[in-house]
Design a protein around this nucleic acid. Structure first.
Lengths: 219, 219
DNA sequence: GGTGTTTTTTAGATGAATCTAAATTTTTTA
DNA sequence: TAAAAAATTTAGATTCATCTAAAAAACACC
């Protein structure tokens, strides 16, 4: 299904998917994410439109068609299965898996996908807690509450860290803040929005940028 | 080291390496192996020459420089490590590993290479018995006697099958002719060069094309 | 050793993905 | 609401790997 698309097209589809979780994506956003010029985006959008992978009206945003969404989900499945495989089978840390998966996701066969999925026991979540789309394009349920929005004194469990920034992930690791860690919100800085959380005996300050990327389950 | 080369350049280097085991490679041979036109080969050779990866004099053949050889060996190491990993860790059959490794070899990192090498216990041979170059570019010893050249009545052990043709490999599998299988040469057809070999109770006819690709150890 | 065949190279074109600069449309704001 | 700013698109160029057709060199053979 994805096979006839160039790697570049796949990258665009993937990025558009990520940007359109809430409303259409702008040319500029796509350009920024892909580190290409806005002009390049316009011309690629045109091609994807001809392939019926996106809907687009000039000067308005872009959205994926159903077919485009299916392509995006397949790439995402590859990416997240690879991340989990690298983590579980090859001992990569959660801050290392993204970069490697990024390079491999376009190049594995269906056979490879199926085999690692089987070795992993048909998993539903990657090492960051992100859901792995099923082969038929359905998305496992995901927590959507952000640590940023938790109340003071509330106890919560980290269920997902949806950032691929390796240094942010390493910082969390160094504070013992891994997936399924329980913590309590101690303070909120009204100005910056930063939170101070209590994890066991430690108090850790997390700035807004981070708490927006940490998804939780309330206890 | 390999990093700045395009995938295409890497493919050329790899093919040139394979074709220059004995003497320089011709433009036409390279074109045939890569399924491109001879003109394309000439133009790519020029680029590789500028990068000092090959030596080339117009209308004469091409050979890899030392740097080019190192690049080729690194790609070959990736390829063969991947083949073995697919076979051992993911259960691919020996006739399935080549195609998948071919796609992945250009896209794995040094980190990935090191990790699968470690999981595999720093192996020296891939599932076809082909030697895996070491990280510093040395080639483990390999048997070089061909089944085609064995004598009548001689007993030999299959140590390497250097063909990537899946159907040939499947044929061998179906006759129980795997790596490390012992067999005896029963007959040789003087015209075609085909051999009849005795494997346990079975007699199997192998044509010249096949026996040229099977490397053996004499008992 | 000349002549024809094969191989290799050159010349020039194409398609994909990108770029910059300029033009156009939309949005913001004074 | 008109002018300025920002976003988007168009136009045209560039780079990479490829192609075909034609020219040039090497080889083969009688």
């Amino acid at each position: 299904m994805t096979r006839t698309l160039t790697q570049s097209m796949q990258d665009y589809v993937k990025v558009i998917y990520g940007l359109t979780r809430s409303g259409p994506a702008s040319t500029n956003d796509i350009a920024r994410k892909l580190s290409v010029s806005a002009a390049s985006v316009t011309s690629m959008i045109k091609k994807l439109h001809e392939l019926k992978l996106v809907r687009h009206t000039s000067y308005r945003g872009v959205a994926l068609s159903h077919a485009g969404t299916m392509v995006a989900l397949e790439i995402l499945r590859h990416h997240r299965l690879l991340e989990l495989y690298l983590n579980e089978a090859l001992g990569y840390a959660w801050d290392e898996v993204h970069a490697e998966a990024e390079k491999l996701e376009h190049h594995i066969s269906e056979e490879f996908e199926d085999r690692i999925a089987k070795v992993l026991g048909d998993p539903s979540y990657d090492p960051h807690g992100d859901p792995i789309p099923t082969k038929d394009g359905r998305m496992p349920p995901t927590v959507s509450e952000r640590l940023a929005d938790a109340n003071i004194n509330e106890s919560v469990v980290i269920r997902r860290v949806s950032s691929h920034d390796a240094s942010m992930l390493r910082m969390l690791t160094s504070h013992g803040l891994l997936l399924n860690t329980t913590l309590r919100v101690a303070l909120r800085d009204a100005d910056s929005g930063a939170l101070v959380v209590q994890h066991g005996k430690r108090r850790i300050t997390l700035d807004r940028e981070i708490t927006e990327n940490i998804f939780i389950e309330r206890l």
